[in-house]
Each structure stands twice: as structure tokens, then as C-alpha cells.
Design a protein around this nucleic acid. Structure first.
Lengths: 343, 343
DNA sequence: GTTTGAAATGTAATCGATTACACAGTGCGG
DNA sequence: CCGCACTGTGTAATCGATTACATTTCAAAC
């Protein structure tokens, strides 16, 4: 009852041609005469033939797949990026492999595994943790040009990188609060080993200094981008004797849960406390009060990264340029920011 | 400067054994003597050898990868499931391919592509849309046993399915509202072609009937699980002459944006309007008021589905059982539900 | 010291495509 | 009518592993 899968020779037989011709019909149809091309396609249809991917990959030494390394797949910030990466590659005949880099195995390990054993032709990593030694290893195998960073990146390893203009984002946030009249601004950071968290924090500090604002040590609250750290930050903020009138949060999730906890403690947002987030995740506009935040164009980030990698996979010559592209960010003013109390 | 990738023959040469022995060292190490096994592993280390996946796949007729079909990758509800699926397969040496089934190509098409051309050994689909004819096609190739549904499922196609106990969830929601004293309950549905939406709606109706509540046609508001439809639903609700005192929403995202819009219109939640969601996405507990909802254990769903598929891929005999497993759901009572006004 | 069976290893066929190279057919200019 | 360039197609080598089958090694039993 169960037919064996048709192979290329079966198609060739049915069409009355050689396997080479069938193969050419599939990969370079214009090299065949109209007549045989039709015959082959008919035969493919009647046999129900599908190219065996493993055989093709072995012969052509390509995988037809790319790996996306995602730190925390459960985070909605990443999943939209993944989605647009998927769109680009699907449209170009590539499969997309995902790997959650929070897994025990280090990102380094995963990237080299997939690249070296030929499971993937290239890698987009949303995780900036990659060591310089891994870079060396990849370079020696001439695989370095098949890796691009998206969103995060590493200072230790120069690779093409698509990222939001984080400095601008942080500046917009601070300037917005200052323009409203705030002089005491707090900051909830991301994880200290995260490049985005470091950039946002350092620009926050610089920009405060630029405006002549001093920052009490208590006002910089270490966090990790998550909801739960936002709630904790709110508690610390509330307990402060000299309480800031505004907070710049390193992520929307921090901001949202911080607001929620602050409200539960009787603080009004934005009347008593202004809050600015970062990312503009979808829900930010659908809570009340709606979150003022810095928009990152996640779909664009994913698309740009995918197209950069695609270009590298398809262009044979090895252009040794290492482009860094900045996706625009934008201040989205909603309802969680207002002038400080008593103005 | 650039060494060619070492192949199995290179390892064999270095170790002074045949390729068969090297291969066995990799796949069935206990069939080798301690001494040669060590020699082979040493040689692997010194050469930096990695198994070529395409070659292995071609020879063994397996892909070592599974496909996860996700309707809307950007939706955080799915991405956490994806994450736990990824964990299970990563731990068992499988790669995970993802595909967003919102892509132009129909789910059917994608599944058959990946399975037939040997890109994937199995499929977990979070998308319940699959035709009976596709089922036939797969059955004919004996590939049907390598597909499992997770979360969603199809009535037209009997396949192993891991799902939350949706009827219980809807019942818990309605009963909770009724217990608080509500007699006029609205429902915002998911897309009408979605199996989950249909089940939740029909249980909602049944359960209201069971409690002797009548439902005005206006009180069933068609939605699509998204944030924006929640806002629209709020507007319709507010405009109603005979307004319900409670709403059961088919998803948390609907509930959250509905609440937000209702609050903007001056309605108090839960005093004027009680709201119950469905899913218990992470943010549900981190907004104010915190959302009362039906918890689905997404990590468990993903894990169960992954383990079911894994079992099927690893067990040769074809057990023709088609298990349907229900993951438990739970009412999480938070702060968006209260007795109706005037009680 | 054989015999014998199990354990360890080797030889070579095989998976299913792609593609270098060879060859046949066709049309054109001289 | 021949040679030449070009187009279209076929033959067979090849990608890099796995594994059926053959062969060697070895220890225990006689």
C-alpha cells in the first residue's frame, strides 16, 4: 500500500531523459528546450517527486538553512524579530533553525556546532555574548563572514551588526523627561553583562550630566529587563527618602511592572512619577495609562539582519567590510510622562 | 592559510583505523575496545573533526530536525511554548526549525514540504488548520504518525494532540463570575475559524444556559485574540444600552486592552465591569489591576508535545493509538473581578 | 595445540542528488 | 560540402558518512 519515495531516476525514467536533465530542469530550467522541460515537469507531477534535501545538501555543500540564536525565546521582544527574519528567509527558500541561547550550552558552542557540521549556512545572533576566540576559530574556517549580530553585539568581536540607535534612544528619553521639568531621574538597568544595558545606562549618565543633573547612587537600580525586576525596582524607589520624580527603564517590561507596583502602593503615574520605557512592545500602547517609550522597529531590525546575511550567503566574493547599521528609534509620547509634581 | 574541513577518512588515518571504526566510535562507542576508542577520540580532537550532517542524514535517511509550525511567531503566547519545545529537542540532539504559518503558503503545504523532502523528521503544529486531504497524503507516506498538534487541533483530522482543558477553563471563568453574582456576562471571542475560539465560546454559552442566564446577541463580540480587537470590543460594550457587568475574554491580550480602553472611557475595573482573560501570559500579573484569568501551562504544553513527538520518532513500532492529552488549567483570581455594581 | 565462538575491525556498497566532461545535433559562413 | 560554434542532453564521478558482510583476533575449552 505504501509506495517508496520517488527518486530522481524515477522521474528521469518516466520523462524518458537522464537524471542530469531532471536535475537541470529543477535548478536551471532555461538551459533546457521547451519540450523536454515540459516533459520533465509533467513527470515530476505524475510521480510526486520531491528533491531529497540531504542528498542535495551533501552534493552542493550547502544547508539551505540559517540559525537564529535567541536569548530567551519566551520574550515577546525577540519573537517579533524572529518572525520577520523568518519571513525573509522563507521567501528565499531557506529554512530557519532556532536555538534558545539560555540553554546550558554557550552561544559560542552552538554557533560553531551548526556552522561546522553544515547544519546551517549562516547565523543571526540576537545574543551579544560571543568570545573573541570563537571569532578566531570561525575566521580560520572562513565562516566568520556568515555570522551577523542583530540588536545586541559584542565589542570583543567585530562582526556585521544591525542594531537600534540605542544612544539616541536613551538621549531622547532623558531629554524628554528633562524638558518636562524633571531634575531627579532614576534608571532601572538591564543585566550588567548586557551590551544594550551598558550603553543605555552610560548614555543616561552622560545625558544627565550634560543637563547638569546629579544622580544619587540609589537612583540607578540594577535590573535584568524582566517584569519581576520592575516590581522590585518600584519597591526600592518607593522606599527612598529622596525620591526621583521620573524613571527611565531599560525595557518596557520593567516599566510596565514598575508602574503597576507603584500604583498599588498609591503612587499616581504620571502625576507623582513619570515613567519612560524602551522597546515599544505591542502591549505598551494598550495599558492604561499608555506607556511613553522609545520605539525600536523590531520588524525592520529582523528584516535588515536577514537581508544582510542573505546577501553574504549569496555573494561569492568576500567583501571584507563589516557594516554596522543603525535602525531608527523614536520617542513615543503617551501618558506615563508629565511634569513633576509641584510645577 | 585555510585548511579544508577534516573528513572521517582523515580521522581514520590519524588514528590508524578504518572509517568504519571511526563511525562506530561516534554512534556505538561500546562496540569498540577501550584502546581504539581512545585512539579515535584523540584523533577526532587533534583533527577538529565534526560529522557532516548532510552526509549522515543522507545515509541514515533521517533529518535530526523537527519543524514547529507557529501561527504568528510575534505572539508571546506561542513563543514560550516554542521555547520549551526547543529545550526538549535540544537536549535530545535534534534541531528545531520554525515556520510562521501566517506566511502566504498554507500550513498543509509547509508540513508536507518539510516532511517529504526530508528536512524534518516530524512536525509539531500549534496551528489547527490542516485539511483532511493532507492527512490522507501523509498517511499514504506513513508520515502521519510524525505529526502532533499542540494547543490547537483539527476536528477533521485525528492526530495526537496536546491541549489545555479548554472546556474546563471556560467553565471556571463563567462559574467564577456567576459566583460573584453576575447575571449579564459578555464574551469576546477569538477568530471564528479557530478551534479554541469555538470551544471557548460554545462552553461559555452552555454554561450560561446551565446557570439560567440569557445572553443578548450583542454580548457576544467577535474578536481575533489580538490587542486591537480588545479595544474595539470595549467600545462596543460601552455603547450598549443594556450593558453587561462582566466580560469573559478569549485571550489575555483581548482582556488587557479591553480594560485599558474601558478605563479610558471612565469605567472602573472591577467595580463597574469585571473582566476574566484566558492564557495567563506573563504580563497578566504585572498590570494594575492585575488580571483574573485562566492559566494555561505553556511550558508544560510545549514539553508534552515535544516528548510525544520524540517518543514517536524513536519508537519503531507504529502504535496506532492517537492520544489526546489535556494539560490542566486553573483559575487565577486577581483583581479584575468583583461582585457586580449595586450588590 | 587445535578448535570454536564471540568480539573487534576492515572492505566496499550505498544513500540521492549535482555537475564536469563528453558527445550529438543544428544552423551558418565560406 | 565542410568546419565551427553553440545548444541540448547523457555518462559517470562525486559529496561524506553508515553499515552489511567479510575477515581477523583472541580467549576459553578441549
Amino acid at each position: 500500500m505504501q509506495m517508496p519515495k520517488p527518486r530522481i531516476t524515477d522521474v528521469a525514467q518516466v520523462a524518458g531523459v537522464s537524471t542530469a536533465t531532471v536535475s537541470r530542469a529543477l535548478t536551471q530550467p532555461d538551459r533546457l528546450s521547451e519540450k523536454t522541460r515540459q516533459r520533465v515537469f509533467d513527470a515530476i507531477r505524475t510521480t510526486g517527486y520531491r528533491v531529497n534535501r540531504a542528498a542535495r545538501n551533501l552534493r552542493t555543500q550547502r544547508a539551505g538553512a540559517v540559525l537564529v540564536l535567541v536569548p530567551n525565546l519566551g520574550n515577546p521582544f525577540f519573537s517579533l524579530i524572529l518572525s520577520s527574519i523568518n519571513d525573509v528567509f522563507a521567501a528565499n527558500g531557506y529554512s530557519v533553525l532556532v536555538f534558545d541561547s539560555q540553554q546550558p550550552s554557550a552561544p559560542d558552542q552552538v554557533v560553531s556546532d551548526y556552522l561546522f557540521n553544515g547544519s546551517a549556512d549562516g547565523v543571526i545572533t540576537l545574543d551579544g555574548h560571543m568570545s573573541a576566540t570563537m571569532g578566531e576559530t570561525l575566521k580560520n574556517a572562513d565562516l566568520l563572514r556568515n555570522v551577523v549580530f542583530c540588536c545586541e553585539w559584542s565589542d570583543k568581536l567585530l562582526l556585521p551588526s544591525i542594531r537600534s540607535d540605542n544612544p539616541l534612544g536613551a538621549r531622547l528619553a532623558v531629554d524628554h523627561l528633562v524638558a518636562l521639568g524633571h531634575r531627579k531621574i532614576a534608571h532601572v538597568t538591564g543585566p550588567s553583562d548586557n551590551i544594550l544595558a551598558r550603553v543605555r545606562r552610560s548614555v543616561f549618565e552622560d545625558r544627565c550630566a550634560h543637563h547638569g543633573l546629579s544622580i544619587a547612587p540609589d537612583w540607578i537600580i540594577p535590573g535584568d529587563f524582566t517584569l519581576s525586576c520592575g516590581a522590585r525596582a518600584a519597591e526600592r524607589l518607593i522606599a527612598l527618602a529622596d525620591r526621583p520624580t521620573a524613571v527611565f527603564c531599560a525595557s518596557d517590561e520593567i516599566a510596565l511592572s514598575l508602574i503597576s507596583r507603584a500604583q498599588q502602593a498609591g503612587l499616581r503615574v504620571p502625576e507623582d512619577l513619570s515613567v519612560v520605557g524602551f522597546d515599544d512592545i505591542e502591549i505598551a500602547g494598550h495599558v492604561s495609562p499608555a506607556l511613553t517609550t522609545i520605539r525600536q522597529d523590531r520588524a525592520l531590525l529582523g528584516r535588515m539582519a536577514a537581508e544582510e546575511l542573505l546577501g553574504r550567503l549569496q555573494s561569492d566574493p568576500s567583501p571584507h567590510a563589516v557594516p554596522i547599521s543603525f535602525a531608527p528609534v523614536e520617542l513615543i509620547t503617551r501618558s506615563t510622562t508629565a511634569p513633576p509634581p509641584g510645577r
